[in-house]
Design a binder for these strands. Structure first.
Lengths: 201, 201
DNA sequence: TCCTGGATGTTAACGGTGTCAACATAAAGG
DNA sequence: CCTTTATGTTGACACCGTTAACATCCAGGA
């Protein structure tokens, strides 16, 4: 009886394996059968916990959004209590996540883009955006950022940060920790350019 | 003899079909067999022209990079001969492409990110970046953009534009032509924020 | 305590997929 | 004309996602 009939927490084990493995194989290279085997279970056991493959990967994406939100929160919290610094630190936490888990980040947005994305998944994504929007709004309220539609400016900011986090020329270079360091510095400089534009004129 | 034994130009037909269909099904939902059937040929005929599926899709990506380069060129050319306007018009052409062909744009970068991306594919991608770098460098030479490493600033600019081109597609706002119009205006505003930051201080 | 129903896991099967090998046909060129 | 080469077809293999039918375990009421 080295392996009992019931796994114990198959659902969590599958999600954890998928989340870890996604970085290696890419999310399209992950098969239900291989994941099941890796977790030590038969190739259809997962269907007791997930409607289909997409549902499993959606859970990974949703959890990753929560994780990213937490990272950006911590980034903002650990920065000087000043709008620009907070926004910058938060954005850099986002970029750091993108450099350390590019495939997963790509998957998060690719699954959100899907027409039948689950409501909880979309909520997780929008939660992340809402946090960013709060930072931008605070900067406007403090008179440090330019006036204008907060939603618009936040989207601009999101696009900048997301672009920095996903640009292949950056992610491709982030293999060694040395390269990761220079990539981060480069991203910080780029973000500073945008933040200069965001400042009140 | 409604269909002759030899297709005529199977290679081009497959690429054209894949390029068109990618927008509907997404690039992972495209199967060799289905494409072959759609073009009116047997399910392995494609292997006379492409080593494997990836090779076919790489051609689509490479051609799309050329197309995007051409669009950004035209955008710059049709703008007032002034660095900021040219860069803005060029970037907006990029964004327009992203809004009209989001799946294809995603595929272009996803295939470029792959470790075994073909050299011609990567060259096409870098060609696009080189053009952008030229625009940024011209602005610096004219004293309109801030001084600094041109490569760095260009990458910042690329990230901004790429983020704008990628992000709205996941907020799924660009379906009707009305929405596309407002999405473009929003992107233009966002790009303006960045360009303000890029300006000489 | 039994035993019964629901939760979880397994086995078998179906259609679909990428790809290779063997074969068939057409075009090109001596 | 005949042979070489390019192109297309058929058949097979292993793998994949998913469903249906069956097996096993656990929990809770008689």
């Amino acid at each position: 009886m080295s392996s009992p009939y019931h796994h114990g927490d198959l659902k969590a084990a599958l999600v954890a394996y998928a989340r870890e493995q996604m970085e290696h194989t890419g999310f399209d290279g992950l098969s239900m059968r291989e994941m099941a085997k890796a977790v030590g279970v038969s190739h259809t056991a997962a269907y007791r916990h997930f409607a289909d493959k997409k549902a499993l990967l959606d859970v990974v994406a949703t959890e990753s959004f929560s994780e990213l939100l937490e990272l950006t929160r911590q980034g903002a919290a650990s920065a000087p209590a000043e709008p620009r610094s907070r926004l910058q630190a938060s954005g850099m936490a986002y970029v750091r996540f993108g450099l350390s888990a590019p495939r997963r980040l790509a998957h998060m947005f690719s699954s959100m883009e899907a027409p039948q994305a689950s409501e909880t998944l979309r909520a997780a994504g929008f939660g992340l955006f809402a946090f960013l929007e709060g930072l931008v709004g605070a900067g406007q309220a403090a008179g440090v950022f330019r006036a204008g539609d907060t939603f618009q400016l936040s989207r601009a900011c999101w696009a900048m940060v997301h672009g920095l986090a996903t640009l292949p020329s950056l992610t491709r270079l982030a293999h060694s920790s040395q390269e990761l360091e220079t990539a981060l510095l480069s991203a910080e400089e780029a973000l500073a350019v945008f933040l200069d534009g965001l400042a009140r004129k």
